[in-house]
Design a protein around this nucleic acid. Structure first.
Lengths: 194, 194
DNA sequence: ACGCTGATGACAGTCACTGACATCGGTCGT
DNA sequence: ACGACCGATGTCAGTGACTGTCATCAGCGT
């Protein structure tokens, strides 16, 4: 029998999400999260750099997924299509966790500081994708533009997945991959309009 | 003669930029900024919501410029071109303040929290542009995608304006409007590649 | 002259976050 | 089996961002 309950980090993540949902982000103190997880405030900060980061712990593995998918795309693929392939690859792990994603997004949407953190995570993602594209021989500024564009598409598709407008989609869970394809097609139509 | 020196807000902005440049953002306390401006910490927080906001005071008027330019664009213009016109309109006021813009960007680039704040300002800009586009009858998600795309173009062009790679541009100040047009053309080339 | 207003100061308080040191099961080398 | 060491956690004191509240006082209108 070990000295402490296992998975301290996971307990902190769960406690934080619950409390942020119940009381809101600002009305929750780190001490409360730690107490609910059976730990101390100091330990919270050993696992997470700040009060916001506890909601973004999975961002690292998501970024890996994206980058690997870009790197692994066939050389013949145009940059924007390599990015599109990466977006669809990254969509897969969300499929099982729509409810969790929805709760998390609700918390983030309700607080400006959390939206800031989400934006910088997405920017970091875009930067990593641009790096991967440059690794494929794509030059600047095409690499950055394709990456940023891809993230914009992902944001739009994700938002439609979480919070569907279409009445059919709001009954049956829409398919994130398909929404990504649709959004990318919309984007191509928009930018072609000159 | 009035009771206090005039332009307290401006003095705080200038003191903050100077100190952030000298010592870095984190190493500067609000009390120090206030003291250098001849005011107290409490007064700083009456003018700016937080320590970061003092660098982003001008964002509001920039957003006005953008939105007015989108609203004022000829009805016949395609969404992406209306956005492009707005970007060029917004470029004008920067022309006179490249050195100031450069210092400000140097401070922001050096600190993650400031980058977060910049990103949310840009996102707010994108959201306002999307609103303006919807006011022109553009439907979703085309409005959001055109707006986000426009911001991506602006970011890339601004970065190239502040920190030119091209040797000719690094001698003569490049023209921000022209960089915007070039970047938009690059984007169109990228997204057309399918 | 009088009272009101608006910008500022003074001050105490909360909370996010950090550094330093203590604690103590588990593990490893012998 | 024993002792040295390690790593996750606890304890505690401190800094600094930010807030609520009340006081101050020049200027302004009446």
């Amino acid at each position: 029998m070990s000295r402490w309950e296992p998975n301290a980090r996971g307990r902190l993540e769960q406690a934080a999400l619950e409390l942020y949902l119940e009381r809101g982000f600002e009305q929750t103190t780190v001490a409360e999260i730690a107490k609910q997880a059976g730990l101390t405030e100091r330990t919270f900060f050993r696992h997470f750099a700040d009060k916001r980061e506890v909601l973004f712990a999975g961002a690292g593995s998501l970024q890996e997924l994206f980058v690997n998918a870009v790197v692994g795309a066939p050389d013949s693929m145009a940059p924007i299509d390599a990015v599109a392939a990466a977006l669809e690859a990254a969509a897969a792990p969300f499929r099982e966790r729509r409810e969790h994603a929805r709760q998390r997004q609700a918390v983030i949407a309700a607080n400006a500081e959390l939206r800031e953190r989400e934006l910088i995570k997405l920017a970091s993602l875009a930067s990593a994708i641009a790096d991967a594209l440059r690794g494929r021989g794509v030059t600047e500024p095409a690499a950055s533009l394709a990456a940023e564009t891809g993230i914009a598409v992902f944001k739009v598709a994700f938002e439609r997945w979480i919070n569907p407008v279409d009445s059919a989609d709001s009954i049956n869970q829409p398919d994130l991959s398909q929404l990504i394809r649709e959004s990318l097609d919309e984007l191509k139509a928009v930018t072609a309009g000159s």
